[in-house]
């Protein structure tokens, strides 16, 4: 279900709730698939007593992955050409995240339309946890 260039315009916002009440188990799942077993993310004793954090927190890359899900659900499979993020705040167990994309520009590249997006993923308090940019191929 790729998006047609004519169906979107600069300033349009698309958003999706990409996780609801993030569980510690999902963080464990992500550690297992990504291979990043940093105990900061899954080991409450280590995260609090050794590292000095209030609780274990999610991998930044898990939030990027969930933000990517919003993009592929909206723009279609295999359409992304660029995707980049900054991790601005930590994501903790229990967080509910909404990923948003704002259309900045629609332009031509290699003979086809491409959209440039600004990204912002926020938690249940509206606090930004990830910001970023993405570009994707559209249908003419």
């Amino acid at each position: 279900m790729p998006v047609k260039a004519s169906s979107i315009k600069v300033g349009d916002v698309h958003e999706e709730v990409v996780c609801n009440d993030l569980s510690r188990t999902q963080i464990v799942q992500y550690a297992g698939t990504s291979g990043d077993y940093n105990p900061l993310h899954t080991d409450e004793v280590f995260a609090t007593k050794i590292a000095g954090y209030p609780t274990a927190f999610a991998h930044g890359m898990l939030t990027m992955g969930m933000t990517g899900k919003m993009l592929t659900n909206w723009l279609g499979d295999g359409r992304l050409t660029k995707f980049g993020v900054r991790f601005v705040s930590q994501v903790f167990p229990g967080d509910t995240l909404t990923a948003k994309a704002t259309v900045k520009e629609i332009r031509q590249e290699n003979g086809g339309p491409v959209v440039d997006l600004e990204l912002s993923t926020v938690n249940q308090e509206g606090k930004e946890v990830v910001t970023g940019q993405a570009s994707a191929r559209l249908d003419p």
Binding site: N38, P39, L40, I50, A51, G52, H59, G60, M61, M64, D77, G78, L80, T81, K82, F83, G84, V85, R86, F87
Partner: peptide
């Protein structure tokens, strides 16, 4: 990759896809 108090954290990640 260092972990602990005063630790190494991931600040940014960017990808450019030539194909999927």
């Amino acid at each position: 990759q260092r972990a602990g108090g005063g630790s190494g954290l991931h600040a940014e990640q960017h990808y450019e896809y030539h194909r999927h």
